[in-house]
């Protein structure tokens, strides 16, 4: 359906914006390495089904490879910055102080409690869906600590947030058209979107009206 397509396109756009930002500017100011590492973990644990060869569709498979590949590539580009732009790298590390163990632990526990089946694949899937819902927190934390961000960085976060937000009408659509109600994705998707709500509000008030992103 249209919401699902738009959501996935928005997800693709967010990654393209991020890659272009890092490659063009040759700096990583304001981008959280921790969030990017969490996304590698999210995609690698979610798409383990690639190994089972029970593929849903060519579209899904290509997208999965794209998300795993680009998330690893982003982390590599950011690590390269250590040599090519050490000032920017140090500055990023100085601000990227969120303790991700407070996300990883609870997500692992939640995956053990809430899952569709007690198998390695399903537990990893559940872990990834919980982790995705909070993976942006180091990035938002960094943003709130520095109080401002480059416009491109905010476009990236907006596109990334929009992706999960658009999955919500997709789930409503699927409930009515297929009678499908996938509770875990829906709950974590709502949680994820809620975490972005503050950001969305400031983005709408400032960036969309041509003013820079600056926190009150």
């Amino acid at each position: 359906n249209i919401f699902r397509i738009l959501a996935d396109l928005s997800h693709l756009a967010s990654i393209v914006i991020l890659l272009e930002t890092i490659r063009k500017a040759r700096q990583i100011d304001g981008i959280s390495l921790k969030t990017q590492i969490l996304y590698v973990l999210v995609f690698c644990t979610r798409y383990l089904d690639l190994l089972t060869f029970r593929w849903t569709s060519l579209y899904n498979t290509l997208m999965k490879f794209f998300f795993i590949g680009t998330s690893v590539y982003v982390v590599k580009l950011m690590q390269d910055c250590k040599l090519t732009n050490p000032v920017s790298y140090k500055d990023m590390m100085f601000r990227d102080t969120f303790q991700i163990k407070y996300l990883l632990g609870p997500c692992a526990l939640l995956a053990l409690v809430f899952n569709y089946k007690f198998t390695v694949l399903e537990l990893c899937w559940s872990f990834s869906i919980w982790l995705e819902s909070v993976a942006i927190l180091p990035q938002l934390f960094m943003l709130s600590r520095s109080g401002k961000a480059s416009t491109l960085t905010t476009h990236y976060i907006f596109a990334l947030g929009l992706y999960r937000a658009l999955y919500i009408p997709n789930w409503i659509w699927r409930y009515y058209s297929e009678n499908r109600l996938e509770k875990l994705s829906i709950f974590t998707g709502l949680l994820q979107t809620a975490l972005y709500s503050d950001f969305f509000y400031i983005y709408y008030r400032k960036v969309m009206k041509g003013r820079g992103f600056e926190l009150p």
């Binding site: 699902r4 849903t56 899904n60 569709y116």
Partner: peptide, 10 residues
């Protein structure tokens, strides 16, 4: 109540 769900979303 279905216990297994096909993960056809990304």
């Amino acid at each position: 109540e279905g216990t297994e769900v096909e993960h056809d979303e990304l």
